[in-house]
Amino acid sequence: MTAANSRAALLAFVGTQILPHEADLRRMLTRLGVKAHERDDIVQEVYCRLLRLDGVDHIDDPRAYLFRTARNVVLAQIRRNRVVSIMTMQNLDDLHVADAMPNPETATAARVELNQVLGLIRDLPERCRQVFELRKVHGLSQAETAARLGVSENIVEKETAKGLTAILKTLSASPLLTKRVPASAPGARHVVD
């Protein structure tokens, strides 16, 4: 697999299998008393660990993987003497098994998923929405989008950054329903760290 291919596979995996659970992870961390800026640190470190993976094919249960990685990140932060609000060891282990809690992401129809993704774009402020519809739904380039809207490329780029920040904020607050990738071998779960 080439580097570009594996980056594309990782992005697809993170976008469809990890991001949708981020809001639940943040909610769990909030419940444990972790403050907002500490949550940001922890979430960013979790994504950074995903970067170090050789591949993602071996991850049968991305949600469980996400929570387990977050637990390890919290422990690593404490080892580096970072101020991270308390958790009992018991609660850290709850993080570990949080995937056992009932969660809404059961097999979701493609239509529902489509509506959710389109909903992310639809909820943007008007000008952001126009940029994202042209670029993401119609697949136009930035230059084509600028020409179509009659504005400079700089403006399109600014709107892109602004809209992406807004979408990430939405994703961090509410879970997205996604189609679950079936486990390759039921009963045989990998433990990954």
């Binding site: 594309a8 991001l19 998923e113 993401k136 119609h138 697949g139």
Partner: peptide, 11 residues
């Protein structure tokens, strides 16, 4: 970047 690529699914 993953969120950006996720939006391609609308296409």
């Amino acid at each position: 970047e993953a969120a950006w690529v996720l939006l391609d699914r609308s296409q």
